[in-house]
Design a protein around this nucleic acid. Sequence first.
DNA 1: GACATCGTCTCAGAATGTGAGACAGTGTCT
DNA 2: AGACACTGTCTCACATTCTGAGACGATGTC
Lengths: 220, 220
Amino acid sequence: MNSTLSGVGVLDKAVAVLEAVDGGARSLADLVVATGLSRATAHRLAAALVAHDLLRRDAEGRYLPGLRLIALGRAAAAELPLAVAAAPALERLREATGESVQLYVRQGPSRVCVASLESPHGLRTIVGLGASLPLDLGSAGKVLRAEPAAVARGWASSVAEREPGVASVSAPVLDGARVVAAVSVSGPIDRTTRDPGRRYATAVTTAAREVEMAAGLGPR
Amino acid sequence: MNSTLSGVGVLDKAVAVLEAVDGGARSLADLVVATGLSRATAHRLAAALVAHDLLRRDAEGRYLPGLRLIALGRAAAAELPLAVAAAPALERLREATGESVQLYVRQGPSRVCVASLESPHGLRTIVGLGASLPLDLGSAGKVLRAEPAAVARGWASSVAEREPGVASVSAPVLDGARVVAAVSVSGPIDRTTRDPGRRYATAVTTAAREVEMAAGLGPR
DNA sequence: GACATCGTCTCAGAATGTGAGACAGTGTCT
DNA sequence: AGACACTGTCTCACATTCTGAGACGATGTC
């Protein structure tokens, strides 16, 4: 199940417990099956996490993510200079395209959405802030993987790759030659057409340059 | 022995590391002084947390809160039925008063802000979502402590108690006789006057009743 | 009434985490 | 140039800490 290289330790188990509750309220028994720990161990770790407010219990005794996490989450978001610097450029990109806009950074074997603006349309792409998406699917994945074709052209597109009915165009945010993030526009194929690059590539690459400028980076 | 505050264990140390970085980027040496751990231990724990994306490292090698935290934080916020149910009532309260509005819940020895709407005024009270504030100061503190005078009257007020220049009025959100949260309005004394209750008590208690209704609770 | 399932707690055994110290790399004085 | 004071990283023998089977009382369900 869990595949990080780590000799099993308390911390790894505690994190497993923490991640088990991020889908919703879980009873102790649920935690046991989700983590593979023994009842005694799951109970002990959960109790310890509760003591630190990383977990809390509802009236029925089930475990929920603790309130401390919402403060830590905000600290994590605030400590992302790129996301805050990028905000104005992303806002302009949303206005120019009318579609949902996201900023992704690479995170080990996946990509994490660190900024998300939604299209004003009724039918729109929605990616939750902090959401973890696969690196091998979608235009942003190509960009973050530094796929040769994407690097050469300065942008990448995908149609119904990660999600049916959705197309997207992404451009790399560069620091020198290093890809540090991907600016992405996505929307329903009906609006984006099956060749979304034609429509949005210019706007997206422009936005990527603006982000670099605002963040003090640059392609050099 | 005592199960409330645990004797030192890995988990407690890991949490100490996690909390050390929520103020900003920290070098390993910073972590050592902040946590009191040995360099070797701090390094090992930090590395383990990085593997779980609960910590990350910037270009200079310093430790920052990890991106996984922002997803967990959002999950924690989403899992707060009270906060989501309260949103419309709080919005109405902000419109009615023109001041910043917060919802607090008790958290052990302090109170945590679980919903925060800011006043449209240029000069306004700002309380970060997830912020942890003292329970012994401010009108919301009185309410959450179930201070007799506050319970009897149905609301509490404070002037320049927690923060100079700021006054607030809070009302309890009740489930039966139990105080589950505090609805709070706060602003600069110049606007709220030195008797903020006169001005806002009705609106705040009304909002508290609306929150109870929306959350399926009630004073009975 | 018998039975299943829940959360909680204890305890002996062992696996796990621990800190001193070695190490290489970097920056700063003299 | 050297000497020095820092970094962050890693190893290793030791013992502290965590572990899981199982007992327990409460609840819930046939």
